[in-house]
């Protein structure tokens, strides 16, 4: 260790210091993404979901068979080089049908979730932000809606609206938004109480500014997580409706409808049930795991 006299001259505070390592400063989003990337399971789930989505887009045209063309010469063929997932009792190519069904399932999941989240966020946000009497009545309405078992209500609505994609989505979303609304309301109520919002209010910030700068950024995390749980929930619900014969109508199909119709042939052709069920399970599994990963990544308490 070499010490010279020059080392002992008082410099005092130096604002700009040279050799001082700081951890890189990241925005909330960057930090969350960085932590999500460390989560191998979540990244694998994301990868699977991308592949599934791509296959639903490209799949039906890959096998060279149309999903609704029947072929009486090729009934119930097991999986082979010709028909990768086999054929169904009407001789239709299951590979094409599985991905065509996936289109419907995913579409219902995505569109339905978009509606649920939008309606739920607005309803919950307004209820929580206004508070007081309006909040009380808005919550009563939700209380009534949730005490009607959702499956019962979905069944009744789809009876009422008839069959078809549109009515299916309406039936699934009519009550699906309530859980999002409740969650957002809780979050908004909590944030409203926090000092930084009170500070902004006392500094004269406008309502719009408070909503844009404080409420939305602080609820974005739970909205993203909620999305990853709503999508598979809707795909699942559609599958149940299809099982009861209330889902997508022929000649169109979905994973749920494929699995439901394959049940009749389970004794002899179990592969017909296997492929659509596998896709449902994979989608559910991947979304759940990705959602868990996102929840961890977005949790501000875990930021370090």
């Amino acid at each position: 260790m070499q010490i010279s006299k020059a080392d002992f001259i008082i410099e005092g505070l130096i604002t700009q210091t040279i050799d001082h390592k700081m951890r890189p400063s990241l925005t909330y989003g960057q930090d969350a993404w960085r932590r999500l990337k460390l989560n191998k399971i979540a990244m694998l789930s994301l990868f699977i979901l991308i592949i599934l989505t791509l296959m639903c887009i490209l799949g039906p045209s890959l096998s060279g068979y149309d999903f609704k063309t029947t072929n009486t010469l090729q009934l119930n063929f097991p999986p082979s080089l010709q028909h990768w997932f086999g054929t169904d009792p009407l001789g239709r190519d299951l590979f094409s049908r599985v991905w065509q069904g996936g289109r419907i399932s995913l579409l219902i999941g995505f569109i339905g979730t978009f509606i649920c989240i939008t309606v739920g966020t607005m309803y919950g946000g307004i209820s929580g932000y206004i508070g007081g009497r309006a909040d009380h009545y808005m919550m009563r309405v939700i209380e009534v809606l949730v005490s009607i078992p959702s499956l019962v209500m979905v069944i009744l609505l789809s009876l009422y609206l008839g069959s078809g994609m549109l009515s299916l989505i309406i039936a699934l979303t009519a009550f699906g938004w309530t859980s999002t609304a409740r969650m957002i309301r809780g979050q908004v109520l909590q944030i409203k109480q926090q000092e930084f919002v009170l500070a902004a209010v006392s500094l004269g910030a406008s309502t719009a500014r408070i909503i844009l700068k404080h409420l939305i950024p602080n609820t974005l995390g739970i909205i993203i997580v909620d999305i990853t749980f709503t999508i598979p929930g809707l795909i699942f619900a559609e599958a149940f409706l299809s099982f009861m014969g209330l889902g997508v109508q022929i000649p169109n199909t979905s994973w749920g409808a494929l699995a439901a119709s394959a049940r009749d042939n389970i004794m002899f052709y179990p592969y017909q049930l296997f492929f659509p069920s596998l896709m449902i399970a994979l989608t559910m599994l991947s979304f759940s795991l990705l959602g868990d990963g996102l929840r961890d990544a977005l949790d501000p308490k875990l930021r370090s």
């Binding site: 598979p232 699942f236 599958a239 149940f240 099982f243 749920g256 699995a259 439901a260 049940r263 389970i266 049930l273 069920s277 449902i280 399970a281 559910m284 599994l285 759940s288 795991l289």
Partner: peptide, 13 residues
């Protein structure tokens, strides 16, 4: 996670 990923009618079948 498997329990909530497999539709009950598939499991039952």
């Amino acid at each position: 996670i498997l329990g909530v990923s497999i539709p009950s009618f598939v499991l039952a079948t």
